[in-house]
Simulated scan of single mutants.
Amino acid sequence: MASSKRELIEPHEGDKRYIRRDDEGRIKESTDVSRSLSQDVRKDAKNEAEPGHGDRGDRKG
Rank of each mutant, 00 (worst) to 15 (best):
M1R: 12
M1A: 14
M1D: 13
M1S: 13
M1Y: 09
M1P: 10
A2V: 10
A2D: 14
S4T: 15
S4Q: 11
S4D: 02
K5L: 05
K5T: 09
R6Q: 11
R6S: 06
R6V: 10
E7G: 04
E7C: 00
E7Y: 10
E7W: 01
L8Q: 00
L8Y: 01
L8V: 04
L8M: 06
I9R: 10
I9M: 05
E10C: 05
E10H: 03
P11I: 03
P11E: 06
P11W: 05
H12D: 13
E13C: 04
E13Q: 12
E13L: 14
E13R: 08
G14R: 05
G14I: 04
G14L: 07
G14Q: 02
G14P: 00
D15R: 11
D15N: 12
D15C: 06
D15M: 07
K16D: 03
K16I: 04
K16Q: 14
R17N: 02
R17E: 11
R17D: 04
R17S: 08
Y18H: 09
R20P: 02
R20L: 08
R20V: 08
R21T: 01
R21F: 06
D22Y: 07
D22G: 03
D22W: 05
D22I: 08
D22N: 15
D23K: 14
D23V: 09
E24I: 01
E24F: 10
G25D: 06
G25Y: 01
G25S: 09
R26Y: 09
R26G: 07
R26F: 10
I27K: 03
I27S: 00
I27D: 07
K28P: 00
E29Q: 12
S30I: 15
S30L: 01
S30P: 00
T31A: 09
T31L: 13
T31Q: 12
D32Q: 10
D32M: 04
D32C: 03
D32K: 13
V33T: 07
S34L: 08
S36W: 11
L37V: 09
S38G: 00
Q39V: 12
Q39I: 14
Q39R: 15
D40C: 03
D40V: 10
V41K: 12
R42K: 15
R42G: 11
K43G: 04
K43E: 15
K43S: 13
D44K: 13
D44Q: 11
A45I: 00
A45H: 13
A45K: 13
K46D: 13
K46Y: 09
N47D: 13
N47E: 11
E48R: 14
E48I: 15
A49D: 02
A49S: 14
A49W: 06
E50L: 11
E50V: 05
E50S: 09
P51V: 01
P51G: 03
P51F: 04
H53R: 08
H53Y: 12
H53V: 02
G54T: 02
G54K: 02
D55I: 01
D55A: 07
D55C: 05
D55P: 01
D55W: 09
R56G: 01
R56I: 02
R56F: 04
R56P: 03
R56E: 15
R56S: 09
G57W: 03
G57A: 00
G57C: 01
G57V: 02
D58G: 15
D58R: 15
D58W: 07
R59L: 10
R59V: 02
R59Y: 14
R59E: 09
K60D: 11
K60H: 05
K60I: 06
G61E: 11
G61A: 12
G61N: 07
G61K: 15
G61T: 07
